[in-house]
Design a protein around this nucleic acid. Structure first.
Length: 333
DNA sequence: CGAACCGGTACACGAACGTG
DNA sequence: CACGTTCGTGTACCGGTTCG
């Protein structure tokens, strides 16, 4: 963080008080306490055995308690969390100090229960594909992934023997230049182990993604118009150090588009949008997604598909809820 | 792999203090 | 006065988290 001001983000200043659903947070904490008690008493389901589940429940209790304390300050007023954003080098906006941006997801969902979350579907893959096409390089494999995101991740997960979330992480790692190498210190083997990394690399669709991304990266960086001092300036008007690696430079360019897209949304609905999350945001009322995507397209030249979720506190004992709560998959789904 | 954040820890440095 | 130790502050790095 380099302490830049948020001059481009005038509307974001109105979001320095984030309303939170205090009642839902209390209810969520009640649910967590019951789960924790079962762990301690030994009456919990066998999947929760060992120290992990209890530790995770304690962690979520601590984080939700902290949100509640932050929602009771004189500065922001009861029911509001104070939030100070600072613009990063790439144009992204990051919360300072205690921020709902980096609180565990289940806690954030409880705190914002009832609001609407919007995010750009597969944001950076979408940006890279469109950016490459503008520079004359087409990415059919990426486009296929974008068209059937969930199906593709599920196929990878089933083939390699990993969770869908791990598949997503590995696919993102490719985008940012992860090495195609099974040795332990590389990011993909670290996520899923060397053996599974090999079978991941062996999938034809995955291999195509690697080569396609390499070509896209080269085409974009070669053709990007340079500033006077030979630096690359992203779509948010921010320059990147030319000594950075090609992977870092591309990340800077994609984040510039992302920041600009998000800024467009904020300017469209400044009074409803209450939290920024880099490729998405939370709104207190439902928004017209066609209008959002059209305005983003006008402002950035990129067309995205967006996803809308009506946020609910992650309570209940369905498998999918417990997986997201425990952040692991003891059932091996 | 990329961008950040935080808290904790390790280390360097200068000021203040104690000792010879 | 010179030197060494101690203490406090500031910087750097590590490992954890979020997001993509």
């Amino acid at each position: 963080m380099d302490g830049l001001t948020t001059t481009a983000w005038k509307s974001a200043k109105a979001m320095n008080r984030i309303p939170v659903n205090v009642a839902a947070l209390h209810e969520f904490r009640g649910f967590l306490e019951v789960c924790l008690d079962e762990c301690i008493a030994g009456t919990a389901p066998p999947e929760w055995s060992g120290q992990y589940a209890a530790g995770r429940f304690r962690e979520l209790l601590a984080a939700s308690g902290q949100v509640l304390r932050m929602a009771n300050t004189a500065a922001a007023g009861p029911g509001f969390v104070p939030q100070h954003y600072v613009q990063a080098r790439s144009g992204r906006l990051y919360g300072q100090g205690f921020t709902l941006q980096s609180v565990p997801t289940p806690v954030r969902h409880a705190a914002m229960a009832g609001w609407y979350e919007y995010d750009i579907s597969n944001c950076h893959y979408s940006i890279v594909s469109q950016m490459a096409r503008k520079h004359g390089f087409c990415c059919p494999a990426i486009d296929a992934y974008l068209l059937d995101k969930d199906g593709f991740r599920r196929r990878v997960a089933a083939q390699v023997g990993i969770t869908v979330d791990q598949a997503k992480q590995c696919l993102l790692a490719i985008l940012y230049g992860a090495r195609r190498n099974p040795s332990e210190h590389n990011s993909i083997p670290q996520e899923i182990g060397s053996e599974r990394a090999r079978s991941f690399y062996d999938m034809a669709e995955v291999a195509t993604l690697f080569t396609e991304l390499q070509g896209a990266r080269r085409a974009i960086l070669r053709n990007w118009t340079r500033s006077g001092n030979a630096r690359l300036v992203n779509d948010f008007g921010r320059a990147v150090d030319p000594k950075q690696t090609p992977e870092q430079q591309l990340a800077h360019l994609t984040q510039g588009v992302e920041a600009r897209a998000l800024l467009t949304c904020v300017n469209l609905a400044p009074s409803q949008i209450v939290l920024l999350q880099h490729d998405g945001f939370v709104s207190t009322s439902p928004l017209n997604m066609d209008e959002l995507t059209n305005r983003i397209c006008d402002a950035t030249g990129y067309r995205f598909s967006m996803e809308e979720v009506h946020i609910a506190a992650p309570m209940g004992r369905t498998k999918s809820n417990l997986i997201s709560l425990l952040r692991q998959d003891p059932w091996g789904l």
